[in-house]
Design a binder for these strands. Structure first.
Length: 627
DNA sequence: GAATCCGGTGAG
DNA sequence: TCACCGGATTCC
């Protein structure tokens, strides 16, 4: 009698069932008994005999129909292996529920032809006129024609270029065989590209997490009926149940938005590459600041690098020493006075007015709960902690030494605006906090550097990044690439003949050598050398374990757990570290032998079932080591 | 995800 | 003594 490994969309491993007909049901949705109810599941594999470890099997209740093809099942199995996650959780993060619903033929409310989604931002005016390297375009199209797996990493001059490339590829080949998948990190960008494609009469569907159920069902219906040529979506679109994929394009490949927040904590870029590999179709990753990891993959020949960064001219970058007494460097001040009419962007790493320091004990006021520096808001007289969201009234005296001279240090958006208003009179120029939705650029705009996204606002004459040191002082192994990316996202808002000023207390730091001249190649080599010396990814794999102690659990179980991990894992075991906001504990595992770490941890977690007093969540390739 | 198991609690 | 509970466990 044939047996079948079935996965149900629950946090549950494979279950084995028998069925009286000897047909291969792999990829079929089935109804199976579970405890004393009947649930929907998906057949992962056909077995010829019952596995020994399974005591007894129940019978498959009924067959719903074919849900996924074999390649997609392979993809799900890889996800489960790589992210050390129950296959059921993987199935749950796909569009399984929707697919089942549709093959069962249930009725669903049709969305009216008019999209309920806002269309105000439909226009991507610069896109049509945007320059594109035709060589790059034909390379992608030729590879797509060959129908083989291959990954390109395209270093684009800006985000528009990435969008333009998607658009051109789609308009050139959308009429050919197979479906093209376009993935973007942000919903609003996916929405815009989708609207734009619709405007060009290209048959496309949208997939993002804020769509209503009926809209999502309608998109999935078109996909499983093989009626669409193009899918535009955010990270979970990599699970689109497409019959035949012909090309995957993923923009902003370095974006941390591609990392899923729930288990399995997959990374959409890595999934896209694996999906392309399994489906035998090319994958195109683009970014204006590719991740060091992807660059490394290009260097070792895993991806083909196409460097289009210098296809467009970029603004000059000037590194200036942050003065001690004033906020602006004299050169910046002069620039502001000369060009404020043409629009200048001033950014600071933090909102609010400033931090507060006591001149007697030299302490910066920190949050009592989490130790994070608190931000002072002058207008409201409050101190705010951005990590744990605590708000308190501004102190009258230093809380540490009772000193009376506590004063602002560092610059926030509020303080910059204050300062600028003192320099310029109201008539001279307009000074505003940047409005991300507004297209108009004039006067001086002030914004928090971290919140300024690569947007659609037109271009500034110049931009100034204040207190850049904040970005390079974050203790993380990816700090420098993130800091460089920050500079680039701001430089994109500046006209090509404009200027970008960076104020720092340490202008001789290595990173500025690369930033100043947009020298990516040497930057990546510098970073990779450092990462190799310190055994960080891509030269090792890191796995974060989030451990929750159950009621019965004692602190000493953590020590026992650490011992257990140390004996079962070849590699480093760091922890336990107390998580600041939750009652969880964190272990960091790291090994140069990537595959072995995954395998070791898989077996270790299997044995940990005997550890009753803990619950563990696994995060493979965490985006940051921040606890 | 939900039925069931299990150990602790408290009213009678 | 047993009904009741909440958390842990298990599902093939």
């Amino acid at each position: 009698m044939p047996y079948f490994n079935v996965s149900v969309p629950l946090k549950l491993k494979i279950l084995t069932y028998h069925f009286n007909k000897d047909i291969d049901l792999t990829g079929f949705a089935v109804q199976v008994p579970l405890k004393n109810r009947v649930v929907d599941g998906i057949v992962i594999k056909k077995l010829d005999k019952k596995p020994d470890e399974v005591p007894q099997t129940k019978e498959i209740h009924s067959i719903i129909g074919e849900a996924y093809n074999k390649k997609f099942i392979e993809f799900l199995k890889w996800m489960s292996f790589y992210y050390i996650s129950e296959i059921g959780s993987v199935v749950r993060s796909t569009f399984f529920e929707e697919v089942i619903h549709l093959i069962k033929g249930k009725n669903y409310k049709r969305t009216s032809k008019k999209q309920s989604l806002s269309e105000e931002n439909t226009a991507l005016p610069q896109l049509e006129s945007c320059f594109l390297n035709n060589e790059t375009l034909s390379k992608i199209i030729d590879t797509k024609r060959e129908g083989q797996y291959k990954t390109f990493l395209i270093h684009c001059p800006n985000f528009f270029y990435e969008m333009k490339l998607m658009l051109e590829v789609v308009t050139t080949i959308s009429s050919s065989d197979g479906t093209i998948l376009l993935v973007l990190p942000e919903i609003k960008d996916a929405q815009k590209l989708f609207n734009f494609l619709k405007g060009c009469n290209i048959q496309a569907v949208l997939l993002h997490s804020e769509m209503k159920r009926a809209e999502l069902l309608s998109s999935i219906k078109e996909i499983i009926e093989d009626k669409v040529k193009v899918i535009v979506g955010t990270r979970f679109a990599v699970f689109a149940p497409v019959k035949k994929l012909s090309l995957i394009m993923l923009a902003q490949e370095s974006s941390w938005l591609y990392k899923a927040e729930e288990t399995p904590r997959y990374h959409a870029r890595d999934c896209a590459v694996m999906r392309g590999f399994i489906e035998c179709c090319p994958v195109v990753l683009t970014d204006f600041m590719p991740s060091t990891t992807s660059y490394y993959n290009a260097l070792r020949g895993k991806y083909e690098l196409i460097d289009d960064f210098n296809q467009l001219k970029h603004p000059d970058i000037k590194i200036l020493r942050q003065p001690y007494q004033t906020i602006f460097h004299p050169e910046v001040l002069l620039y502001l006075k000369l060009y404020h009419k043409e629009g200048i962007l001033v950014t600071s790493p933090r909102s609010g007015y400033s931090l507060i320091r006591c001149s007697e004990c030299r302490e910066v006021i920190k949050c009592e709960q989490c130790g994070y520096s608190m931000v002072f808001h002058k207008s409201s007289g409050l101190l705010e902690c951005f990590r744990c969201n605590r708000v308190i009234k501004m102190y009258e005296q230093c809380p540490y030494c009772m000193g009376v001279d506590i004063h602002p240090v560092g610059v926030g958006v509020e303080r910059i605006i204050d300062e600028l208003k003192q320099i310029f009179s109201k008539k001279q120029t307009e000074i505003n906090e940047i409005d991300l939705n507004s297209e108009k650029v004039h006067g001086i705009c002030v914004g928090q550097a971290g919140k300024i996204k690569t947007g659609y606002h037109s271009r500034f004459k110049g931009a100034i990044i204040l207190d850049f040191d904040f970005f390079i002082s974050i203790p993380d192994y990816r700090t420098l690439e993130n800091a460089f990316a920050r500079v680039l996202s701001i430089s994109q808002l500046v006209k090509e003949n404009g200027s970008l000023f960076i104020q720092t207390r340490n202008p001789t730091a290595d990173i500025f050598k690369f930033i100043r001249s947009y020298n990516f190649k040497d930057f990546y080599l510098y970073e990779l050398k450092h990462l190799k010396e310190t055994d960080f990814p891509p030269f090792s794999r890191i796995v974060k374990l989030m451990v929750k102690l159950k009621k019965t659990g004692l602190k000493e179980t953590l020590d026992k757990l650490k011992e257990f991990l140390k004996t079962h894992i070849t590699g480093e075991v760091i922890g336990p570290l107390k998580h600041t906001n939750t009652d969880e504990f964190v272990f960091i595992l790291r090994s140069k032998d990537k595959r072995k770490l995954t395998e070791d941890l898989t077996t270790a977690l299997g044995k940990l079932i005997n550890f009753k007093e803990i619950a563990i969540k696994v995060e493979v390739d965490p985006v940051s080591l921040k606890i």
